[in-house]
Design a protein around this nucleic acid. Sequence first.
DNA 1: ATACATGATTTAGA
DNA 2: TCTAAATCATGTAT
Length: 441
Amino acid sequence: MGGSPAGPGAGGQVLGKGGPPRKLCRAVTARWPQPAGRPRRARSPGGGRTQEPFHAVASPGSPPSALDRGSLRRKHALNCHRMKPALFSVLCEIKEKTGLSIRGAQEEDPPDPQLMRLDNMLLAEGVSGPEKGGGSAAAAAAAAASGGSSDNSIEHSDYRAKLTQIRQIYHTELEKYEQACNEFTTHVMNLLREQSRTRPISPKEIERMVGIIHRKFSSIQMQLKQSTCEAVMILRSRFLDARRKRRNFSKQATEILNEYFYSHLSNPYPSEEAKEELAKKCSITVSQVSNWFGNKRIRYKKNIGKFQEEANLYAAKTAVTAAHAVAAAVQNNQTNSPTTPNSGSSGSFNLPNSGDMFMNMQSLNGDSYQGSQVGANVQSQVDTLRHVINQTGGYSDGLGGNSLYSPHNLNANGGWQDATTPSSVTSPTEGPGSVHSDTSN
DNA sequence: ATACATGATTTAGA
DNA sequence: TCTAAATCATGTAT
């Protein structure tokens, strides 16, 4: 249920309209390298569509061919012809009549909704937005989708790096397109200007031509934007997928969880508060804490024997902590007034060493000393300590059954004792008297 | 390559 | 909604 921190399918939904991510992936990998070649292609054949041969206006770089030379000569002859003004006016008249110059002049393109959507998306993803915080919004969203844990900074930076890459490609391509568009527009304008000497070309016509060119280029830009959007979405979905993948918790996190588990073996059900605290300490989500305890309980119960060594280990740790606690408490009792235990607002111990972390957690559960009864808590620590001492004394007999955390906490039908039973009440010194046959799997 | 460990998910029950 | 139990899927050690 709430187990998944990333939430199955949390990613990829943003672009859901485009189709399943797999397909997108293929589409993009096939399409990505292409845009670089487009401007060149757009430049050359575009001119061939006007009525006059554009190559007639020799580009400054290339020497005119024999054909060009002939055409230039003819043009020059035409321009100098004495009948030219008369012919020109006739042409104007004809054009007026055919209405060529008016047609399509008022084609004002409204803002394309799809283009707007793409623009918005790119902005939201931090691709087309302002230079700095780019991607931070998306990354934050992704982090939120994953449960907000902060243990994935590597993936995070990886994501940002890739997003930056996409962003760069997008901008260079966009720049190229704009440049190509401008070049082509000025080229066409020059041609039209040149042609206007031999045939009537109204400013409206020029405007229209420019409009056509811009529309063409903006459609190419839209393709670029679409590809970029797809790339970002794929990156996102992959990023989230990667987070969905199982990753072992850090050693420290496992230790913290184990310490809690084995010190609350009689009732290994952390409260919501305790879960939150554990989650914070382990840099994982509360759901992950719940999962961990669920797994741990079932696996411990299934094969107690296997976990005994681990249990002893953590018991020893607990004992050390307890020893410190007892020492501190005793000292406190001697030096301070007996009614002022060294506790914070939540009633936790302030231990002089690193063990206090664990002690704090213990206090959170509320089962170590309800009602801030530090005395009782100290008693439980003493019990643990005493028990460990006993255990280490009897450990050499080598029999699995004689272990600190023998399954005395489990009742006959395999369940733990009543969940309300605090661990400190059920003294660990109880010993291996209780029943347990299910040490094997 | 394999077995084992472990985090996540699913299912069913209370 | 929480949990137990089964199971899946991946990480890790050999």
